[in-house]
């Protein structure tokens, strides 16, 4: 996922159309931090951690945050099934309508919200996203979740934590901690939405 240029109010979720495109305009460098194989290993570890921390995945629902959190949630569920044969609930949750920064940019298209059968009441919901940045998306997702019921526990799993939090939010499962500067952007590519699996750090206008 690409994150915007410096000085902006740092919304951490660009529209799906732009986050899937290549390097942002202008001269810059793209440094691959996680390869496809690395992402596979990281997800396997996270699947084990989820099983460990939720006592075998009992009553767990994985909710991906569009766009790329959704395939990540599915992959985590696949790995949990491969490891212990446990079937977790999988779905998606679009937090757009609950964001506090809607007025700061052009109108955002909406993505699908799809909860697994049985809902979320009394369950352990694990929100899944690709990049944790300001924390505003997660805050909006927590509000969106309240519309559908009252989970017993809500946890957060992210592939990359790049820092720069603006809210008191932390992840329970982190694929990779990646210290970045605000001038940089983190781009996640997944085969389900893009051409390949990779996590890159993009330095915009590196010559400046």
């Amino acid at each position: 996922m690409t994150t915007p240029a410096p000085g902006r109010p740092t919304p951490d979720r660009p529209t799906p159309g732009t986050s899937g495109s290549g390097t942002p305009g202008g001269p810059g460098t793209a440094r691959t931090v996680l390869s496809g194989a690395d992402i596979g290993r990281v997800l396997t570890r996270m699947a084990h951690q989820i099983l460990e921390k939720t006592a075998g995945g009992n009553g767990v629902v994985l909710l991906g945050i569009p766009t790329r959190g959704v395939p990540l949630a599915r992959r985590l569920a696949d790995r949990v099934r491969a490891v212990e044969g446990v079937e977790l609930g999988v779905g998606s949750l679009d937090p757009t309508m609950h964001r506090d920064d809607l007025q700061l940019r052009a109108v955002r298209p909406l993505a699908v919200t799809d909860l697994p059968d049985g809902g979320i009441d009394g369950r352990t919901v694990i929100l899944v996203d690709d990049v944790l940045f300001s924390g505003r998306t997660v805050r909006a997702a927590l509000d969106a979740l309240a519309q559908f019921g009252r989970p017993r526990v809500v946890q957060l799993a992210v592939l990359v934590d790049r820092g720069h939090r603006e809210l008191p939010i932390r992840a329970d499962y982190v694929g990779k901690n990646m210290p970045t500067s605000r001038q940089e952007a983190v781009a996640v590519r997944l085969t389900e939405t893009d051409d390949r699996d990779a996590v890159m750090i993009l330095s915009e206008g590196a010559g400046r």
Partner: peptide, 11 residues
């Protein structure tokens, strides 16, 4: 939503 959900600035 589409008319009022984004920024008011006209690009």
């Amino acid at each position: 939503y589409l008319l009022l959900g984004g920024t008011r600035e006209v690009p």
